[in-house]
Design a protein around this nucleic acid. Structure first.
Length: 960
RNA sequence: GCCCAGAUGGCGGAACUGGUAGACGCGUCAGACUCAAAAUCUGGUAUUCGCAAGGAUGUGCAGGUUCGAUUCCUGUUCUGGGCACCA
């Protein structure tokens, strides 16, 4: 009997399906455990080998917990709204619902091949009206709520209205992220306001609110572009210019939750790195907001600084180019320059503005006045100051800040040194340890003390106040797109009204065209019936549905609520959440915020969604390149189909980079490929050798499969290496369709089986670690499973396992494995657990042990890792019931007790010999035994030892 | 540019709390079985000097702490992830 994995896996997958083996109940006497994967976006490229890494890990853990006696919730679904489906629709005219449905079917088939224990009866799809009904419903709750700073939580907006009617906004001043023309009003004011005014004010308090924000606008395409669709300042499609444009947008007031999101991190098990990333994203800082007078103007310049102590070192001010003041304060002389600079900045993304090393800026010609010494400070605009952070203006202290320093140097602005020898004139020093100099009344004061002194002073003078600032901004929550949840909002006379909850779901209407609507609006603006009903034409972003899906799994078919409170109280937090770090600051923050909102409003009983998070590494693709020679003539690419092998590429690159004439380069090519002919005019054009991604599946290692390549690219000329091979370049990149480096798990499952695939993905390395995909080595895992099989069945003899009693040596092997595998599984060290299985089976094979008493518990250990073969062999042993419900074996210490151990003995840290010592030996006895040893005596060379270091169970070191 | 992480043989990786660096697997070399191949089994395999016994070197790079550092500290290089409309 052979190990026929294809038959076995098919059989058990069918059996599990037929018996609903993985269906989970919301009622159980067992303790609960919730294992969740970040659900996938069902892309057209299908599942690639990177997806299952996390799924296999969570599957192993879910199965492990089940064997340990827990009621385990382990669901799966699809994050089905998103841009790619819409782009596909624009290009191919296929409705996103259709293509997404097909992709989901494909994903499901691929997932099923791997033998996961998902409870598919709980599947969710965010694009399904029965699901997004509740996304819309939750949005309405956020719209109808405000953040009460008195009680630190979300509350009904009705309570706010009641307070306004009684005492104006004295108790509830505008939130930090509000933007309204007045800052305070009385009860009388409120009652006198028009409906529109009242609603505008309320909008500034709502947790889900409407405001104005900048988007990437592409005039040529008439549409808003995602950052992803903008490459080097132009649209990815077509290469058209992209500029910033202000549009009406929905937002979530996540800034009000900044502190709670920060504090919440302390109670949850995220990695320190993850907590740090979230903390940095929130970016809490304390400092002061200070107002500077502007010479010859009524206007005041408000800056935020974390270092008020350096106020005498301010040599210039920088305000964001889009700052309101720019227009008011720019002098006549500077106007033209400033306008030119602003046009330049408009074409640049926030990222570029901060990343570029190039220093740019422009003086406004205006001067601010230092409130303490009256010094006139020039005001500049520069792209490195962003309008969205702080007040959009900074006071620049070049001796203390590197970027300010470089700016001052570049524009020849004189630098005041206030930190004495900490500043050497070569580079800035952000020290807080200096004693202040050149600082008026602060001279001689340590910087740390000066911070408070200046804060007190500005508050006393009424020109500023202490302020806590957050880097985090409110979350943009609308897209000018089709394929997303419609907002349940109606606009009447410029006022947003929520739809009645009974009208939900507000279904996404069919459109004839996915093209954008007028004035940057989304495709919904093209629908007559939609606009005439005054419905909001924006849709929600991709993260809307994923911000609460973990709750829907608990109660997926509930039509009366997003999740019954009793059910969410039973399952509570996700005990283990597995997913990539790429979601560190997006999804993970948003879902934490939604959870807190739902908690505040009393809909659920916990305010952090995830108890523990494990970040799986990314399985990267290993891309392959061929190198094409291209001739460029006045912007026209004269296409060639000559591809050079890697070493020639390196050589040509060298020639081109060292400034040789095109003629010489062409000669070089001719040298490689004598048949190469070129026309004289080419000598006036430019030549390039461009790496081009090719399908990894037609490359063997780094050697191109020339036949397959020529099949796809006929008429190509390949300039090969001397040995006749064409060698490709290689690079590690994200696995993606666009890089042609996607490896499909189906092929591997088909060749080696799901169990081998599962164990191999785990064996590759730690789950948390990123690594490029490589099938080298999968044979070893497959061999292990066949070896295990042979402990049960022989090709000739058939059944070889017996009922004989196990020996102590055999029990020792088993119990060692139980201990190691259980520990490793518990701490997510699945790769070492797989190794432990291999060691165990090798040892059993050496002992020729085929005894049921040993093999049966071993199979239970194996179930989470290789469930199909474990079930099959379990049944073969004539065991009762399904192995899925077996009890996890308990390791017995008595089989692992050792009386003595071989210790390494070192002299001064150098290993010299080993000695067998009893485990219960005392420190003194160790010293005595070791010093009496002949080898050690020799190494001591008559010296008396200074001390003997004995680490029980580990080693002994003699120091002389 | 900013934030986070990683770097160990020919390759993937192990070393859990500062204590024998290289478990386990791949590859490779040698051998057994075989007419032969596949499969399977046995042994070797960090580098270097040596016939050997044995020695020296060795965890990206440069330093530091320690009897002892892959592990801790400082600096640095490279690679990967994120940077607010990809998901």
């Amino acid at each position: 009997m052979e190990y026929n994995f294809r038959e076995i896996e098919k059989k058990w997958q069918q059996r599990w399906k037929d018996t609903d083996a993985y269906k989970v109940s919301n009622n159980s006497s067992k303790p609960k455990y919730y294992v969740l994967d970040m659900f996938p976006y069902p892309s057209g490229a299908g599942l690639h080998v990177g997806h299952p890494l996390g799924y296999i890990a969570s599957d192993i853990f879910a199965r492990f917990k089940r064997l340990k006696g827990y009621n385990v919730l382990h669901p799966m679904g699809y994050d089905a709204f998103g841009l790619p489906a819409e782009q596909y629709a624009i290009e191919h005219g296929i409705h996103p619902a259709v293509s997404t449905g097909q992709n989901i079917q494909n994903f499901r088939k691929q997932l099923d091949n791997i033998g996961f224990c998902f409870d598919w009866s709980r599947e969710v799809r965010t694009s399904d009206p029965s699901y997004y009904k509740w996304t819309q419903w939750i949005f309405l709750q956020l719209f109808k709520s405000f953040y009460n700073r008195q009680t630190n939580g979300a509350e009904s907006i009705d309570a706010l209205v009641a307070s306004f009617e009684k005492e104006g906004n004295a108790v509830h001043p505008f939130p930090a992220s509000a933007d309204y023309e007045i800052t305070s009003f009385t009860a009388e004011d409120w009652k006198g306001f028009s409906e529109k005014q009242q609603q505008d004010i309320l909008m500034n308090y709502r947790i889900a609110y409407c405001g104005y924000g900048e988007v990437n606008w592409c005039e040529a395409l008439g549409t808003v572009l995602a950052n992803d669709e903008v490459v080097n300042g132009v649209s990815e499609r077509g290469g058209y210019p992209v500029v910033k444009k202000k549009l009406r947008q929905w937002y979530l007031r996540i800034t009000e939750y900044a502190d709670r999101l920060l504090q919440g991190l302390e109670q949850i098990e995220f990695s320190d790195a993850m907590k740090e990333m979230q903390g940095n994203w929130i970016g809490k800082s304390s400092g002061a907001e200070i107002e500077f007078e502007i010479a010859g103007s009524e206007a005041l310049l408000r800056v935020y600084t974390t270092r008020p102590d350096t106020i005498f070192g301010v040599d210039f001010m920088v305000i964001a180019p889009e700052h309101d003041l720019v227009e008011r304060i720019t002098t006549e002389a500077q106007k033209a320059l400033v306008e030119e600079y602003i046009t330049y900045v408009k074409s640049r993304s926030d990222r570029e503005r901060q990343a570029e090393k190039k220093i740019t800026g422009c003086s406004t010609g205006a001067y601010a006045v230092n409130p303490f010494d009256g010094k006139q400070i020039p005001i500049w605009i520069s792209e490195y100051v962003l309008a969205g952070y702080g007040t959009g203006a900074i006071m620049a202290v070049p001796c203390g800040d590197e970027r300010d320093f470089k700016f001052a140097q570049h524009f020849n602005i004189p630098i005041t040194n206030i930190i004495g020898s900490y500043f050497n004139g070569e580079e800035a020093s952000p020290t807080k340890d200096a004693i202040l100099e050149n600082s008026g009344f602060l001279n001689g004061t340590p910087m740390r003390k000066a911070i408070d002194i200046v804060c007190d002073k500005v508050e006393e003078m009424g020109i500023g106040k202490r302020k806590i600032n957050y880097k985090m901004r409110d979350a943009a929550f609308s897209r000018q797109r089709y394929w997303g949840e419609p907002f349940p909002i109606k606009w009447i006379d410029g006022i947003a009204y929520p739809l009645d909850e009974s009208a939900l779901p507000l279904e996404l209407p069919h459109v004839d065209s996915y093209k954008p609507g007028p004035d940057g609006e989304g495709p919904l603006a093209n629908i007559e019936s939609w606009t005439s009903a005054n419905l909001e034409t924006n849709t929600m972003p991709g993260y809307a549905g994923s911000s609460w899906y973990f709750l829907r799994y608990m109660d997926p078919h509930n039509n009366a609520a997003f999740c019954d409170r009793k059910v969410s109280d039973y399952w509570g937090q996700v005990d283990l959440y597995i997913g990539g770090t790429e979601h560190a600051v997006g999804h993970l923050l948003y879902s934490r915020m939604w959870t807190k909102c739902l908690y505040d409003l009393g809909f659920i009983g916990h305010d952090e969604p995830y108890k523990k998070l494990v970040n799986q590494g990314m399985i990267q693709g290993s891309s392959r390149f061929v190198y094409r020679i291209e001739f460029i003539k006045i912007g026209v690419n004269l296409s060639s189909s000559i591809y050079v092998s890697l070493s020639h590429y390196t050589r040509l690159l060298e020639v081109i980079n060292s400034g040789f004439s095109i003629h010489q380069v062409l000669e070089e090519i001719k040298h490689l490929y004598p048949k190469f002919e070129y026309f004289q005019p080419l000598t006036e054009s430019e030549i390039r050798v461009t790496p081009i991604h090719i399908d990894v599946n037609i490359v063997d290692g780094i050697e191109l499969n020339i036949d397959k390549f020529l099949e796809k690219n006929p008429d190509s000329i390949l300039i090969k290496e001397e040995d006749g091979k064409y060698i490709c370049g290689a690079e590690t990149e994200k696995m993606s369709k666009r890089y042609y480096n996607v490896v499909n798990p189906d092929e591997i499952v088909n060749k080696y089986g799901a169990d081998t695939f599962r164990m191999y993905e785990m064996f590759l390395g730690p789950v948390e670690q990123s690594k490029p995909w490589d099938t080298k080595g999968i044979e070893g895992v497959h061999r292990f499973l066949r070896k295990l099989w042979r402990l049960f069945f022989d090709e000739i003899k058939g059944k070889v396992w017996t009922d004989a009693a196990a020996t102590d040596a055999e029990l020792k092997v088993l119990h060692k494995a139980i201990k190691k595998i259980e520990e490793d599984t518990e701490r997510f060290s699945f790769n070492t657990a797989v190794s432990a299985f291999m060691v165990c089976v090798n040892e059993l094979a050496d002992l020729k042990c085929s005894k049921k008493a040993i093999l049966q518990p071993l199979l239970v250990l194996l179930t989470p890792y290789a469930p199909h073969v474990a079930e099959e062999l379990w049944a073969a042993l004539g065991s009762e019931g399904s192995i899925l419900n077996a009890a996890y074996p308990v390791f017995e210490p008595k089989y692992l007790i050792e009386s003595s151990k071989e210790y390494p003995i070192s002299v001064n840290g150098k290993l010299r010999t080993t000695i067998n010592l009893p485990l219960d030996i005392t420190k003194d006895q160790v010293e005595e035994t070791v010093l009496a040893n002949d080898v050690i005596k020799k190494w001591l060379e008559g010296n008396s030892p200074k001390k003997v270091i004995y680490v029980p169970g580990k080693m002994v070191n003699v120091v002389i």
